[in-house]
Write a protein that binds this DNA or RNA. Structure first.
Lengths: 338, 338
DNA sequence: CTGAAAGCGCTTACAG
DNA sequence: CTGAAAGCGCTTACAG
């Protein structure tokens, strides 16, 4: 591989001038520029990213931390962030937290070893204290609402508010005995907010009960398996807020197979508006996931600009007040299951 | 950030010894080791990955090239590869090819700038000639069958054979007028193989026709929109090989809405066995996608071992004969749509 | 506008 | 088993 030195020799210029030209520094003469461009093509020169990073302290890379890249929600988030990053010449470094056992150390390794310029965190980092020190002063944006409630810049849909709206929709369609599902998985911070919303809603709506049911996987199968439990409840529920299109889909199919009319005898609401919701004509709460990923990158990009490798104490002190929270608009899509 | 020099000063040893210890070089005394470990903890030392890469020529990173990380197939592939990579201490660098306009140059940038140690390619790289030169001698594994047919090590399901098996299944269930769907998208190399299988099957099976239909998106919506076209065909088809669970799902729902009995009057086969296929009880061809991703990484890992940064001419000459092709077993899952 | 030179933080023969 | 020293390929004040 040719180096900057080869270009310098080829053109008779110094490596300094070559470097400036490559980095679009203003003070380079027209002739020098042309000669260098020719040499670059001629020799097939490519800058060595490791050398560049070592010297400049920047990597041109951004880390993305998700529980599982194959889950539809996180896959879309990653795709959106990746697209936005590529548009600005950044590469994406992917980390999955639910890959076997996991330690704060290992998760943060790329950050601490100067492997990335910034971090996009969609996993819940619990307990936060373990991560806080290593991440302080480092550009981080989260898509996890629990982390948004700490000091972190965030892009997210409000799960508390959207759950309340979903429940209100069920009430308005004459549901009186609603089941609110939430996950027992510790990774899902939105579930805590949903549970809070279930209680708040029941308190504020006389004559409507919200029965809470827990589930341990966010898949259609889990939804199907939930159906008999649902039917065994007393009084028999007339509506379910699932918090997931996959669970809603499994439930819907099970209901139909068992001759339970949806929506007449059971109303079902999903969450996300993923392809499965559209095919099954599920009522659901739409999140613009791809755009959220892109927006998260944009926000991160901003932070990387303002806080270089060593932020001043003043900059750190100022941060809390300037922390950006982007609450993304969700939308209840009423279709044929309510 | 403390450096190796700080550790050397703290312990009174040389940077060489510290480096050896950190890299688990055998010749380090017990005392030195303990002192260094203490210092590392005490000072919170982390190796700088850029410096390490620059010096060693290795990055500890692997690139993954997919058309779109949010598509269920590629999402699962990435997740599997990422998990396997993480298990061996490698990070994943994600590249999406269908992100706006795309140039060979830009795609290969991480490779050429020594940004990764190896590449996993699931996108079709066409025309291959544009990429061949830059990639020659570099560890590459593909999951794209078209690339497997060139010189590249590969992990893939045989789309020709699996399509023939799907068609045979339809024939065995008394379908006589089959529609074979394929995508017009240039990114999907498997579609060419499917089309070849459609023709081959028709040739070998008197009394069975295979009508080819094209589609421009791999989504449930596209499947639904295909339904009227299907019904307008003469003679009316009695089965469809879709090549995609999403398309099959859209088609199935549209058929039911229009009162066409599946499977009695129309049989439908999907592909992949994604969650949507399981909920809808679709007959489909299962691919173990996550495992394919993991296997692709394992294979790549092997190549990275055998061909270091500068492979000998002999090693290159030997390669063609040793190129590994892992043909992964698929499985036809007969459910309720055939 | 340009060049000589220092140095980013490591690893690795080489010599002991 | 250990250390002194060179050097990986760049960027960036500094001096002209």
């Amino acid at each position: 591989m040719p180096t900057i030195k080869d270009i310098a020799e080829f053109t008779g210029l110094s490596t300094a001038t070559v470097s400036r030209c490559l980095n679009r520094h203003p003070y380079v003469s027209r002739e020098a520029q042309l000669a260098i461009e020719l040499a670059v093509r001629e020799l097939g020169y490519r800058p060595n990213s490791a050398a560049r990073s070592l010297r400049s302290g920047r990597t041109g890379r951004v880390g993305v931390v998700v529980p599982d890249a194959s889950h539809p929600f996180f896959a879309a988030l990653v795709a959106g962030a990746g697209q936005a990053a590529a548009a600005e010449g950044f590469d994406l470094l992917l980390q999955q937290t639910e890959t076997g056992e996991w330690h704060a150390d290992r998760l943060l390794e790329p950050v601490i070893t100067a492997g990335v310029d910034g971090l996009l965190v969609a996993s819940e980092l619990t307990p936060w204290e373990q991560y806080a020190a290593a991440l302080s002063g480092f550009p981080v944006v989260t898509c996890d609402q629990a982390l948004a409630e700490i000091d972190l810049p965030a892009v997210y849909v409000d799960h508390y508010e959207s759950t309340l709206e979903g429940l209100a929709h069920l009430r308005d369609r004459d549901s009186r005995s609603i089941v609110g599902i939430s996950s027992t998985s510790p990774a899902a911070s939105c579930d805590r907010l949903r549970r809070a919303a279930y209680r708040e809603f029941a308190l504020g709506n006389q004559g409507v009960t919200v029965h809470e049911l827990y589930i341990d996987a966010d898949t259609p199968e889990a939804g199907s398996q939930l159906f008999p439990k649902l039917m065994a409840l007393e009084p028999r529920p007339d509506a379910v807020f699932t918090g997931s299109d996959d669970i809603a889909a499994g439930l819907l199919v099970a209901a139909r197979e068992n001759g339970v009319d949806v929506p007449a005898r059971l109303k079902i609401i999903g969450f996300d508006d993923s392809p499965i919701a559209r095919v099954l004509r599920l009522t659901t709460v739409r999140q613009p996931v791809r755009r959220m990923g892109a927006r998260a990158f944009t926000l991160l990009r901003q932070l990387m600009h303002t806080s270089p490798s060593s932020p001043s104490p003043r900059a750190i002190a100022d941060r809390p007040s300037g922390v950006q929270r982007v609450r993304v608009r969700y939308k209840l899509i009423a279709r044929e299951t309510t």
